[in-house]
Nucleic acid binder design. Structure first.
Length: 739
RNA sequence: AGCGGGGUAGGGUAGCCAGGACAUCCCGUCGGGCUCAUAACCCGGAGAUCGGUCGUUCAAAUCGACCCCCCGCUACCA
């Protein structure tokens, strides 16, 4: 019998920023678990995706960076491709939309739809900037909202009151690039006649009762409220050109073109296998199911637009299931790439192994509703579930067996009951994982794996091999054999979730080969009895929680140290500068503009606060490897100094973590530091009263404070690792700026 | 505004579509056990008027109506 085939399509991440945990949890990890499961079962899987490289977000980013769309799109494609590989997401092909192949496939579809009468050319009005000499997409025009009077409304929708506008409706339109007033010009565009597909779409959706209810409902609602024909071309240069004469300066809208990537990627994959027709097996055989993994915002493109395109084109399979996920949020805020906090995969993988991240995201997957991400929760779940329950079970079984037997012990007679108990537990886990994973219920699938691990722990306790070791060595080996069978089953069942570590576990069980295609049956295969066991090492280590982002987390970029001034000389070539030799645990040279405020004698022997991760700079020919922090008010300048015992080199942390990256002087200037007087345990006077955690500080004492931004109403006092407050060397008015 | 989702012990979360006996699991907390293991594992307890009100029913977290609060989408952010 031929192996069942399955097509897995994954929403294309946008090539204007690095992918983050939200992409992972929402649309990348689920299909990888799904495809690994299917491959374990021996099914043939084609899994494709790529970078969505066209569209305005890319051009906007390029303009901001003074770069080209090509450059931005290529850069993020490479970054994201690597991030996806590093996370262990295995695609048959992860390509991109800016390829000849994609353009060819899009053109083929465009022309066939045109031929079949589903595309139509129509006249529309569009903003045109006479100064930039180009048509302006909605986002490039701003103006005054005619409903609420908001002066900075976008031309398509007012962010304040939510009103939407047609072209030309907004008052006083302005081109956001050159601020000229755009005019209205007539332009020709192709419209996709979605209305042609209303009836067939409705019956298609009704037929797909296995869709998640949110996907069903959302789609039905859309359909029932009626479809509108949509323009699928626009006036801009970055994108797939329209394949017709007389259409210079027009490209195909990304929302229309990007979904076609599923098909073009499949064809590209087929090319690469040497059989250019291979894609057909996955797209034209009605028995092959196509699964589309994406986030909830993407639902209509996959349940309405893409099926319409496919229907209009003909002969290709429609999506079988669209298991859309909700969002992963960060403290309730949307984890987004265009605004708000972002936790990108490359940075996370520098800190943690992929399997730890995969575990957490699978356990906290936003399947039914938005799920919240926090580092605290990450630490808790990884340490208490993955490490303590699963990892520790592996390790206690393997290390005990290795230490006392050195090889896989046989199963003697007389363990009928125990044997049956273990068989049942494994069998149950197999059924559950199969049921849940084949129906895209990944959280439950993982839970079933963890339940088996918990059973293992309970079983290990109940048979107490450590006491059998003295009383009945054969029986002890027997119960270990049974535990090893549980471990082996866990290796296979855990593989879709934790591919890297379970692969290593496979070897620790003295097994040959690896887990992969068709390994499902190995969950219950005979152990490698009699084989020597390799020395086991714990598979997972506990993680330490990175500190939560506080309003002051930007401060973490500063590396401040206590410095002892050893020697002061006048700068040979400047009349305001002095050259300081400072001990910050190691000797460095600083150039400071303190002449006139301090004498050489006053500074020598003084403890100061130095920023040490400032890029070294030459000041009038003398190298300065940092900067002495000083407060200035009017014509007064006073250096900051610890108000108690402090060692040279000691960090000034204020309880925060620190990154060691070098800062430019400009970056440093963005930090807001001011002097203030402690009022009570919760407030300080920085020229105005401000909330600050000043518990334990002496009232009336002057200290330096960090502010998230100027005018903020919370502040953080500076103090050293040993909690010595940083004050001012003398008296200064409150609110004095520190530089 | 329209549409969609959500509100369950101190925190997080399952169950809800197909209504039923002590409401799931993780963390925390309290007590006990074990000592093979990464201060880990195992057992037990306390802790919830299942957002509110009204209704249907022998029976409601679950079905219906109304209300309150969060969040997302509305065609250029998974």
């Amino acid at each position: 019998m031929e192996r069942p085939k399955i097509l897995i399509c994954v929403a294309w991440p946008y090539a204007n920023s690095a992918i983050h945990l939200g992409h992972m949890a929402g649309s990348l990890l689920p299909p990888d678990i799904f495809s690994r499961y299917h491959r374990l079962r021996g099914h043939r899987v084609l899994m494709v995706s790529g970078s969505d490289q066209h569209g305005t977000p890319v051009t906007v980013r390029a303009e901001k960076e003074g770069s080209t769309p090509q450059e931005v799109a290529e850069r993020y494609h490479e970054i994201n491709k690597k991030a996806i590989e590093d996370m262990g997401i295995e695609f048959s092909l992860f390509t991109k939309t800016h390829t000849d192949n994609h353009v060819r496939v899009v053109h083929d579809i465009f022309l066939r739809l045109l031929e079949n009468g589903h595309l139509e050319q129509r006249q529309t009005m569009q903003y045109y900037c006479p100064q930039c000499k180009k048509f302006l997409p909605d986002r490039y025009v701003e103006g005054r909202c005619i409903k609420c009077g908001n002066e900075n409304s976008r031309s398509d929708q007012c962010d304040k009151c939510g009103a939407t506008f047609e072209v030309g409706e907004i008052a006083d339109p302005v081109c956001i690039t050159c601020h000229a007033r755009p005019e209205m010009r007539e332009t020709q565009h192709y419209f996709f006649k979605l209305t042609d597909f209303e009836a067939p779409l409705l019956s298609y959706v009704r037929k797909n009762e296995h869709w998640r209810s949110n996907v069903q409902l959302f789609t039905k609602n859309w359909l029932e409220s009626g479809l509108k024909d949509r323009p699928i071309t626009r006036d801009m240069s970055w994108g797939v050109p329209v394949p017709l004469p007389g259409t210079e300066g027009k490209v195909i809208y990304v929302w229309f073109e990007a979904v076609i990537g599923y098909l073009s990627a499949s064809k590209e994959w087929a090319q690469s296998t040497g059989d250019p027709e291979a894609w057909k097996a996955f797209w034209t055989d009605p028995e092959v199911r196509g699964y589309y993994f994406l986030g909830k915002d993407n639902i209509p493109f996959h349940t309405i637009i893409w099926p319409s395109i496919l229907m209009g084109y003909g002969d290709l399979n429609l999506p079988y299931d669209v298991p859309a996920n909700e969002f992963l949020t960060f403290k309730g805020e949307k984890l987004s790439k265009s605004k708000g906090p972002s936790i990108d995969i490359p940075s996370i993988l520098r800190l943690f192994e992929a399997d730890l991240v995969r575990y957490y995201l699978a356990a906290n997957m936003p399947e039914g509703k938005d799920a919240d991400f926090s580092w605290e929760d990450f630490e808790t779940k990884v340490n208490n579930e993955l490490v303590a329950t699963l990892g520790n079970y592996f390790h206690r079984v393997l290390s005990f067996t290795h230490k006392n037997f050195g090889k896989v012990p046989p199963l003697p007679d007389g363990l009928k009951d125990e044997s049956r108990e273990v068989d049942q537990a494994i069998a149950q886990a197999l059924v559950e994982v199969e049921t849940y994973l084949s129906s895209c219920q990944f959280k439950k699938g993982l839970k079933a794996v963890m339940d088996l691990a918990q059973f293992g722990n309970r079983f290990f306790d109940s048979v107490a091999p450590w006491s059998l070791l003295r009383s009945d060595r054969d029986r002890c080996g027997g119960v270990l054999n049974l535990n090893l069978r549980v471990v082996q089953a866990l290796a296979v069942l855990g593989y879709p979730f934790l591919p890297f570590s379970t692969q290593r576990l496979w070897g620790l069980l003295a097994n040959d080969g690896s887990i992969g295609d068709g390994s499902w049956k190995d969950a219950t295969k005979d152990l490698s009895v009699g084989r020597p066991l390799p020395e086991p090492k714990p598979l997972y280590k506990k993680v330490e929680m990175p500190s939560e982002a506080s309003p002051f987390s930007a401060f973490e970029a500063l590396d401040l140290r206590v410095g002892l001034v050893k020697e002061v000389t006048d700068h040979p070539n400047a009349d305001k500068l002095m050259v300081l030799q400072v001990d910050i645990g190691s000797p460095i040279q600083l150039v400071a503009g303190l002449k006139g405020y301090y004498s050489k004698e006053q500074l020598t022997g003084k403890k100061v606060v130095v920023i040490v991760n400032l890029q070294p700079a030459k000041l009038r020919g003398m190298v300065s490897q940092g900067m002495v922090l000083a407060a200035e008010a009017g014509d007064q300048v006073k250096v900051l100094t610890p108000c108690g015992p402090a060692e040279p080199g000691e960090r000034v942390t204020s309880g925060l973590d620190h990154g060691g990256k070098m800062l430019t002087f400009q970056e440093f200037q963005a930090f807001v530091l001011r002097t203030g007087t402690v009022l009570n345990d919760r407030e300080a006077d920085l020229g105005r009263p401000v909330q600050a955690d000043t518990a334990g500080l002496t009232k009336g004492r002057q200290a330096a404070f960090f502010l998230p931004q100027d005018g903020a109403d919370t502040a953080l006092p500076l103090f050293t690792e040993s909690k010595v407050v940083i004050g001012v060397d003398g008296e200064l008015e409150n609110g004095a700026r520190v530089r």
